[in-house]
């Protein structure tokens, strides 16, 4: 039947630890203590996940990623998370902050309200450790839509594209594959990796599929649409719009999916 409850080994136990930090040495402002509740999981240990509490001075911290780095640096070096560019370009630090998927590096402390800050990994993905999830399936789905130019032309120099045609790709090509959108989608949670041959590709892969469907230089539109014409791959999108509301790059995967559906209907006429 429908799977609404968490598997037994995913339930959070009550063994969370508490850590209390001191006033920041690098800050000349009055200390501003904030509490972070961070999901801690180490599947290899066989123990269930727990939520640890960290209190740190954030008077000189601007972004949530900076706060995480301070926690790792000063309180608990075992807190595990991915990060790289710290400017919203690489997509590594995607996680669930105060209930919404986003990039820790572009989420300001001033956007976190006044209460505790809850930090969890991206929902419904296998956890490798703490905030690090296994995105293999997500990347597989991105590869499945063949995200590269397939043209019949072999120009001597380059493929020419008009300014108007190039503009059609704005809002599509900027995706950084952080997986915030797909892992915020309930339909993707339930159908992203359902069973053999039945899987919803998710908003991120579909946004990229649409990016190539819209590319004036690409000659494989029909093949691309054939691949997507499936009850599961495309039509599990039930226009929930979580993808659009969480995208840290301000993109609109829901609109792209609607665009693919429109192309499908027009092709069927």
């Amino acid at each position: 039947m429908v799977e609404l409850t968490l598997p037994r080994n995913s339930k959070i136990n009550s063994k969370g630890k508490s850590y209390k930090g001191e006033k920041s040495a690098s800050s000349d402002k009055a200390p501003e203590m904030r509490t972070f509740k961070i999901y801690r999981s180490d599947p290899d240990s066989g123990e269930n996940p727990r939520v640890d509490t960290y209190e740190i001075d954030v008077s000189d911290v601007s972004m949530v990623l900076d706060a995480l780095i301070r926690i790792k640096d000063t309180l608990d070096p075992t807190v595990t998370f991915r990060r790289s560019c710290r400017e919203g370009v690489c997509g590594s630090c995607a996680m669930n902050i105060n209930g919404a998927n986003t990039l820790a590096c572009t989420k300001g402390m001033d956007e976190c309200g006044s209460g505790d800050v809850a930090i969890y990994p991206l929902p419904h993905q296998p956890v490798v450790k703490d905030l690090v999830t296994d995105l293999s399936k997500f990347y597989e789905q991105h590869a499945a839509i063949e995200p590269f130019l397939q043209s019949d032309d072999e120009p001597e120099k380059e493929h020419i594209q008009s300014h108007e045609d190039r503009e059609k790709l704005d809002g599509l090509y900027e995706c950084i594959l952080c997986a915030c959108c797909s892992t915020s989608c309930p339909s993707y949670w339930w159908n992203g990796d359902k069973d053999d041959g039945n899987e919803y590709l998710g908003p991120a892969a579909l946004l990229q599929a649409y990016r190539w469907l819209q590319d004036s230089r690409d000659d494989e539109k029909s093949k691309r649409l054939d691949y997507l014409d499936d009850n599961f791959r495309l039509y599990r999108c039930h226009t929930i719009f979580n993808c659009t509301s969480v995208c840290p790059k301000g993109l609109n995967p829901a609109e792209a999916i609607a665009g693919i559906k429109r192309m499908m209907v027009e092709r069927a006429k």
């Binding site: 499936d230 009850n231 495309l234 039509y235 559906k261 499908m264 069927a268």
Partner: peptide, 11 residues
């Protein structure tokens, strides 16, 4: 019941 999603969608 996979495949032919568009026929379904239009119907």
């Amino acid at each position: 019941m996979a495949k032919h999603g568009t026929t379904h969608f239009i119907a």
